[in-house]
Each structure stands twice: as structure tokens, then as C-alpha cells.
Deep mutational scan, measured.
Amino acid sequence: MASQGTKRSYEQMETDGERQNATEIRASVGKMIGGIGRFYIQMCTELKLSDYEGRLIQNSLTIERMVLSAFDERRNKYLEEHPSAGKDPKKTGGPIYRRVNGKWMRELILYDKEEIRRIWRQANNGDDATAGLTHMMIWHSNLNDATYQRTRALVRTGMDPRMCSLMQGSTLPRRSGAAGAAVKGVGTMVMELVRMIKRGINDRNFWRGENGRKTRIAYERMCNILKGKFQTAAQKAMMDQVRESRNPGNAEFEDLTFLARSALILRGSVAHKSCLPACVYGPAVASGYDFEREGYSLVGIDPFRLLQNSQVYSLIRPNENPAHKSQLVWMACHSAAFEDLRVLSFIKGTKVLPRGKLSTRGVQIASNENMETMESSTLELRSRYWAIRTRSGGNTNQQRASAGQISIQPTFSVQRNLPFDRTTIMAAFNGNTEGRTSDMRTEIIRMMESARPEDVSFQGRGVFELSDEKAASPIVPSFDMSNEGSYFFGDNAEEYDN
């Protein structure tokens, strides 16, 4: 783990906690998980779902989305002020799938948001429990990260689609708070800032007046979040320049895209947490497990152990491969979309394939898809080993990566060399080191050039047997250095459309 220093740990961010010791953190995270579980059980009762239907990941996603929508204050306010045809701002819903006479049927349900809020609060001892809501947002974000390569979004903001390893959390809503900021990748933060800068260039009043003052505060806050992700002084200094700019424009845009590229080699610290679907927490609570009393951590053995003992089902389209669908969801559960496939294969105990080789589309089923041909199958979400999630980018030494994705962002704290394609990355730096950030740029390029592919990161860190909950005997895996390590390699994943 990167030293926490003055930073709060993510469990504290996750639970809005002030400084807590490890036991208190485990208890408050457990409380959050228990609340999600209780809410899910109650919703299944309301909807009269069978046990099997309640364990269907598509039903879980609909129920999670309903509660997130019920608590989305800004959108609710907007919907009330701008009524649109056929949208009731006070209601929320989605597809629920039921097994009827041996076939899967889709039923569109509609609930009062007020009623959903009441059920959620009741499951969370009367609190709004925003930490639990954020947790579900991060699960949705991790699922998107594993399912889609955001080529269009990258290109629109002047970045290269091969930089997708920097895009963790790119679909997280803005209201996801400190826990959300911690899991956002460098590219995601750059993209958010670039969008602001572009608006400022096109709209003279963007930075002016009372609204402009708020915009400015948001801009500086985002700059500080991004600065905190960088691990070298030169990158941090460049972020200070971007933040202090009187009138952010093209120079800042250039600096930010430069920094994003540099992060492929001088990786930023991005938190990883295993956020599971509500249909995993519900049955665990129903079986009598007391998360608050037992304590829970999002970055240790607990999620692995929970998945070892969970039964989750998914709808499967006619030509999809259930094992591939399982891999997709497994990666999402562990926030591992940008991790090295060699490491993932070792931990999972079966070969993890790149996205383009998977015969599976996303987990969600569109409303126009034919239910007649839908089957369902068990998702295999178990693992051979477990490993500690990392909050750091690993040290800054790398190795060759593949054509589709030119770097990785480690999820697990496991000893290995970190793949990246130096030639491709360095070719993108057209040696432009003039301007006010020239000395920093020169320094950053120097550090990137001296990074050695064969150097090892996370020295001495290994994986653990599932029986080793105290992480007492690390097993340090050895990897084939020459092997392909990137998930979005030469990829044809669908595009994420909101």
C-alpha cells in the first residue's frame, strides 16, 4: 500500500469516517454492505422474486439502478423543472426478469421514488447511507470498465484509444464523492478537466460571474484530485501550473494530454476495490451473516471469500459463452479491467482472455432483445487465490505491452514486471518541450526514458491461498515475461453508450 500519510484510507472515504482504527473501519464497511443486503432482500420480497430470480444479476442491476435514481437529487430536480413526455419524475423502474413456464419473461416495473427511498433508509437504520449508494455506483463503473473500451470518449477529448488503461471510473457520476474520486484513473480526471476547458473556450461566460466562481472551485478541486494521483514531483508541479492558470485554454489542454500520456509509464495511484452486485450481499445477509459484527474490507480476502460461497446467475444470449460472461463479471467484481492478464489468470486459476476474444456482450439486456431465446446460467466467480488490492500504480518500471492497449494499471499487489510499449508511448511525445512547463516536461520525458521494462514492481508481494486469511504465506508467482498482458488488445469491444 502506498503510505497513507495525511490521506484517509478508502474504507474511511467509503464510510465518510473520520480517523478510525482498522477494526472500526471493518465494522463501518460491514455496516454499509449489510445495509445493501437488507435493502436487496426487501426489494425481492416487494417484487415477489423467487430465490433464483433474486440471484439473477440482471435483476440486481435494475434494483441497484432504481435506488441510485431515487437518490439522484440533481436529476430529480431537473426532471421536475423540465417535464418530458412519458417520463414521470417521481417514478423509477426498469426490467425485471421472471421464469414463467420454463421461459424467461421481461416485466417492466415502476415504483415511486419516495417508496424506494423509504425501503433503502429502513434497511440502513434510517440513514441515507450515501456510502452504500456510492458502492453500487463503483460496481456499475467497474462493470462498464470491463465491458467497454471507451474509444470515442478518448478520441473526443484528444487522447489515444490505446490509453484505455487510464480510464478507470470514466462512467462514474460526478456525485460519487471521495470514494469515487479515489477509483478514477488519470485519464478519467484528464477527460473531465478537458471537457471543462473546452467549454470555457467555447463559452465566454463559463468562468464568469457567480456560476463561474463555482465552476472555478470545481476545476481547482479536480486538479488537486489529479495532482494527488501522480507520484513524481515534476508531474505534480505541472498540475500546479494547470490549476493556477488564470484562464484555462489550449496550453492547459496540451499540458493535460501530455500528463495523461506520461501516466502510461509514470503511473498514478488509483484505488481498486472489489464492489459486488447487491444480489451477492442480499443472500449472505439472508443466511444470517452479520457483516457489521464480522467486519468487512473491500481490499482484502473478504470479497473473494464471499464470491467463493455465492451463487449468481445471468441471462445468456443464444451465441454467448457462459464462461466468457463469467470472466467479464469476475473482472468487474475485482475492479480488474486494466490489470495484467498474466496476473489475473494466476489468481483466477483459469486463463483470462483479452476482451476481443470473449464471445459475450454486456450483462444488460436491451429492451428490444428477444426473450424467447434467452437461457440462463451460473456465473463462475470463484478464484484459485486471493491478493491484496493496490492503491498505487506500482513502481515506475515497465515491460512490453500489446498493440491495442499500451500499458496497464495494476489492481493487485503482486510481484511482476509491468508491461508497456515504450516505443509507441515515446513516439507520441513530439519533443515539444517549450513553453512555461518546459523544464517539467524535459524531466518527465527523462524519467520515462530511463524506466526499464525488466524491473520488478511490488517486490516480494504474492497471492494467498483462500485458507490464508491473515495473509501469512505469500506465494510469489513467476510470469512468462514475453507473454501478452493487455485486456483490450487489438480490440473490438462495443462502445459504451450512456
Results as ranks from 00 to 15, higher is better:
residue 3 S to Y: 04
residue 170 S to N: 02
residue 386 W to Q: 03
residue 13 M to C: 03
residue 455 D to P: 00
residue 455 D to F: 05
residue 372 E to N: 12
residue 205 N to K: 15
residue 387 A to S: 15
residue 36 I to P: 06
residue 264 L to C: 14
residue 359 S to E: 14
residue 55 R to G: 04
residue 105 M to N: 02
residue 21 N to C: 10
residue 289 Y to N: 10
residue 358 L to M: 15
residue 428 A to T: 10
residue 54 G to Y: 00
residue 459 Q to K: 11
residue 138 I to T: 09
residue 263 A to L: 06
residue 220 E to V: 12
residue 120 W to P: 01
residue 384 R to N: 03
residue 463 V to I: 09
residue 289 Y to G: 07
residue 483 N to K: 13
residue 262 S to N: 12
residue 217 I to M: 14
residue 451 A to H: 10
residue 207 W to A: 02
residue 327 Q to R: 08
residue 375 E to P: 08
residue 301 I to H: 15
residue 366 A to P: 10
residue 56 L to V: 10
residue 391 R to T: 08
residue 157 T to L: 04
residue 340 D to Y: 13
residue 107 E to Y: 09
residue 469 E to N: 13
residue 465 E to P: 01
residue 30 G to E: 12
residue 166 L to W: 01
residue 215 T to Q: 03
residue 224 N to P: 00
residue 102 G to W: 05
residue 245 S to I: 09
residue 443 E to V: 10
residue 37 G to Y: 06
residue 8 R to V: 00
residue 68 L to K: 02
residue 269 S to W: 09
residue 287 S to V: 03
residue 286 A to Q: 07
residue 327 Q to F: 12
residue 275 C to V: 15
residue 19 R to E: 02
residue 1 M to P: 13
residue 198 K to W: 09
residue 373 T to H: 02
residue 35 G to W: 14
residue 407 S to E: 01
residue 309 N to C: 01
residue 375 E to L: 14
residue 378 T to I: 06
residue 471 A to E: 13
residue 175 R to N: 02
residue 123 A to N: 11
residue 155 V to A: 13
residue 108 L to G: 13
residue 266 L to S: 06
residue 27 A to I: 15
residue 251 A to H: 03
residue 214 K to S: 06
residue 441 R to Q: 07
residue 160 D to M: 05
residue 438 S to N: 15
residue 73 E to G: 09
residue 430 N to D: 05
residue 396 T to C: 06
residue 493 A to F: 09
residue 138 I to V: 13
residue 444 I to R: 06
residue 41 I to T: 14
residue 340 D to T: 02
residue 37 G to S: 10
residue 474 P to R: 11
residue 114 E to Y: 14
residue 177 G to I: 05
residue 443 E to K: 09
residue 376 S to N: 15
residue 19 R to S: 14
residue 429 F to Y: 15
residue 405 Q to H: 08
residue 80 E to G: 14
residue 17 G to S: 07
residue 73 E to R: 11
residue 147 T to Y: 08
residue 488 F to V: 05
residue 90 K to D: 00
residue 219 Y to W: 15
residue 97 Y to R: 00
residue 42 Q to H: 09
residue 116 I to F: 04
residue 378 T to F: 00
residue 105 M to E: 08
residue 40 Y to F: 11
residue 100 V to Y: 14
residue 14 E to H: 03
residue 248 P to Q: 11
residue 380 E to M: 13
residue 191 M to D: 09
residue 247 N to M: 03
residue 228 G to D: 07
residue 21 N to K: 10
residue 190 V to A: 15
residue 132 G to C: 11
residue 18 E to D: 14
residue 140 H to K: 01
residue 108 L to K: 07
residue 208 R to M: 11
residue 153 A to R: 08
residue 461 R to G: 11
residue 336 A to H: 01
residue 145 D to S: 06
residue 464 F to E: 06
residue 110 L to A: 04
residue 479 F to E: 02
residue 73 E to S: 13
residue 234 A to T: 15
residue 316 I to K: 01
residue 477 P to H: 10
residue 141 S to L: 01
residue 115 E to I: 03
residue 16 D to M: 04
residue 37 G to D: 06
residue 171 T to D: 06
residue 114 E to K: 10
residue 89 P to G: 15
residue 56 L to N: 08
residue 5 G to H: 07
residue 54 G to A: 14
residue 166 L to S: 15
residue 246 R to E: 00
residue 164 C to T: 13
residue 106 R to L: 05
residue 196 M to C: 05
residue 449 E to Y: 09
residue 351 K to I: 14
residue 331 M to K: 07
residue 430 N to H: 15
residue 213 R to V: 00
residue 355 R to I: 11
residue 105 M to V: 09
residue 120 W to T: 04
residue 337 A to L: 01
residue 255 D to G: 10
residue 215 T to W: 02
residue 11 E to W: 14
residue 63 I to A: 06
residue 294 E to F: 15
residue 69 S to M: 12
residue 51 D to K: 05
residue 14 E to K: 11
residue 307 L to F: 14
residue 304 F to Q: 09
residue 265 I to G: 03
residue 480 D to K: 05
residue 376 S to F: 05
residue 465 E to S: 00
residue 251 A to C: 11
residue 399 Q to V: 12
residue 226 L to W: 09
residue 113 K to I: 10
residue 225 I to Y: 05
residue 188 T to C: 12
residue 196 M to I: 12
residue 8 R to L: 08
residue 363 V to H: 04
residue 32 M to Q: 06
residue 233 A to N: 06
residue 440 M to G: 04
residue 245 S to Q: 12
residue 347 I to E: 03
residue 456 V to N: 06
residue 3 S to C: 07
residue 163 M to H: 02
residue 102 G to E: 12
residue 146 A to L: 01
residue 324 H to T: 05
residue 244 E to C: 05
residue 73 E to I: 09
residue 315 L to M: 07
residue 110 L to T: 05
residue 141 S to N: 14
residue 411 T to M: 10
residue 248 P to F: 09
residue 209 G to M: 07
residue 393 G to K: 02
residue 229 K to G: 05
residue 277 P to H: 11
residue 271 A to R: 01
residue 277 P to V: 01
residue 347 I to F: 13
residue 453 P to W: 13
residue 249 G to V: 11
residue 398 Q to V: 08
residue 78 Y to D: 11
residue 300 G to P: 06
residue 332 A to W: 00
residue 28 S to F: 09
residue 327 Q to W: 07
residue 311 Q to R: 15
